[in-house]
Design a protein around this nucleic acid. Structure first.
Lengths: 349, 349
DNA sequence: TTGTAGGCGTTATCAA
DNA sequence: TTGATAACGCCTACAA
């Protein structure tokens, strides 16, 4: 508890906002009746309801949520926690997640707030926010191994849902995820099935479960197909990272005829690198990505990829969170979406 | 006041969070002393302070912000309002804005929350959130003509700063912006100065001041140079939109030798379209963008553009908001950054 | 330096 | 159907 520079607290100027008291007086009813009229209006006479409604419009009354949440123990908002440096906050993946979560909240009176806690930054500020009763629950996305969100949130009792399997397998916290393992396996099967034999891998960050699971599945698939895994390089899920990784790959093994990249963005980088080296996709090198971002490589070539219904997954996470908040005592189980391969031009001629 | 589906409110399970009362008891002091120890510790004996600190650690105490804000009238957080459909939420511009605002809050105990209110969606939910005392102030970015944020927020008294000049010129609300008019003018001067005479325009959305100001400045610059404005098409600030606009442009006037696009993303689309038509940049057509996003066109050609220090601008907006919240009564003036042209390969040979 | 008492705006309980 | 009244958790004069 040592706020750095909490600014002094001179109350804001201007007329104070109207309170329930003011509203009740204007409507000629008691505070309690006004309160009931505001919240659904059960056991309120039509006359009283009308009077209160009129007063609301006249005064521009809006309930003070701090006061309300103090007694209801509900904040009326949920957080989407993004433990990424702000630069990466804005990639298509997060756009999809935001879209999906918003969809799940559409018929609700719950407001979504995005919380970004930079790694290395004082994430305890975010934690205080989360635990201080500002939100009724949290969805954590893009969780990294060392960020500690699982333990931290798990111990607070704040309803929490992860998008993407969290690291701590013992954790009881529910999550929604794609079957990343199976996705990797499908990629291996596909490339093996089309006759590719010298395969390289551009894996994702080692500290994210999605990357690890995709890699594990891919290796398992290769094994089942009787193929040896070729060189493996880890990228950061970005296009530039994918290109760089691909160059390393071909530096180690110039004869590769197939590459699996753990994200479409990286796959795009791989395509660039292959072409930059004067080779063709898919004639010389087949490329398979992951996510089905419907990105096109520069000259209109489409990427073979593993479908990843991110919007749907995020939406499901939102619904799960709502159930966790309403907490009927039920144990919420993880939800895992099946993986599906989408074959396009980058891997078959 | 008619919450759609406010879920029933069964309090969350589990042990209740420790309260100040619990803390004080554990520390063997009174509530007030505990409170003082928590908030800066003035007039607290070292012994009492130590006892309270120990109890905090032991209990994992975190103040309930709803209760606190009820009495202090401070929420400890500010909102960044983004009135865009969630799909567009995640472009580089917003990434820069988030980065900048976060920087301004770095030494503060204030948490930044992102609020996205889709156009067409019930933005009153966002408004209730804003007015309900959940935040101490708001920064509005990407404000559109019809979204009503100026009037709405202006009337609430909530400290508000706009990034980008708001529509309502009468508004007293402070804002931070680039000198977009001058930026457009610089672009015109530059193209005229390099001998281009048949100029096309890819303007931005008509309902955003940045787009309008850039266009006005550009037209003014052309006038000063004695050039007639060629065809004008409005795009949506995206690459695809820019390409489409460029094709229309060349459909109307095939002999264009220069194009000004009101954003780098659109300029990129213009470059694509020009090349797609078998012409060269800059030999046949010079292209000038806006924003200095340091994007490269596919084959490594760099864009001439108008610099737009978005991070810096957003940071300034955050600082302005903090001052508005601390409100020493001073009238906060708009801040306008000078425009600067960055000449690169897309406009000169 | 400490503790007591009152109030912030709302909802919930319980008589009337 | 209505209206007192008591919390909710915290801060802050004020008095000790």
């Amino acid at each position: 508890m040592n706020p750095k520079t909490t600014p002094a607290a001179p109350a804001r100027e201007g007329r104070p906002l109207p309170t329930l008291e003011d509203l009740a007086r204007a409507a000629g009813v008691s505070r309690s009746t006004a309160s009931r009229a505001i919240n659904g209006g059960s056991r309120v006479s039509p006359a009283a309801q009308a009077a209160v409604d009129a007063a609301i419009a006249e005064l521009g009354y809006i309930p003070n949520r701090a006061a309300r949440s103090l007694v209801t123990r509900r904040a009326g908002s949920v957080a989407l926690v993004i433990p990424e440096p702000d630069a990466r906050v804005m990639d298509p993946y997060f756009a999809a997640v935001v879209t999906g979560v918003n969809q799940s909240l559409r018929d609700t009176d719950i407001q979504l707030v995005l919380l970004m806690s930079r790694a290395g930054d004082d994430s305890s500020r975010t934690l205080r926010y989360l635990r201080g009763g500002h939100v009724d629950g949290a969805i954590v996305v893009s969780h990294h191994r060392a960020d500690g969100w699982v333990e931290t949130l798990g111990s607070t009792g704040l309803p929490t849902v992860f998008i993407g399997r969290p690291w701590d397998r013992k954790s009881e916290l529910p999550f929604v995820d794609l079957d990343n393992f199976e996705g990797g396996r499908l990629a291996a099967r596909h490339l093996a099935g089309t006759g590719r034999t010298h395969l390289g891998t551009v894996a994702g960050p080692k500290d994210m479960t999605a990357a690890v699971d995709r890699l594990d599945g891919w290796l398992q698939g290769l094994k089942e197909a009787g193929l040896k895994p070729g060189p493996i390089v880890h990228g950061d899920f970005t296009t530039a990272g994918g290109a760089e990784a691909a160059r390393k790959l071909f530096g180690q093994a110039p004869a590769l005829d197939g590459v699996f990249a753990a994200s479409d963005l990286m796959a795009l980088g791989v395509v660039e690198a292959v072409r930059g080296a004067g080779k063709g996709v898919p004639e010389d090198v087949a490329v398979v990505g992951f996510d089905n971002h419907s990105i096109q490589a520069p000259n209109g070539m489409d990427l073979t990829t593993v479908a990843h219904p991110m919007v749907e997954i995020a939406k499901n996470a939102g619904q799960l969170l709502i159930r966790a908040i309403e907490n009927t005592g039920e144990q919420l189980e993880p939800v895992i979406y099946p993986a599906e391969l989408v074959v396009r031009g980058s891997s078959v001629m």
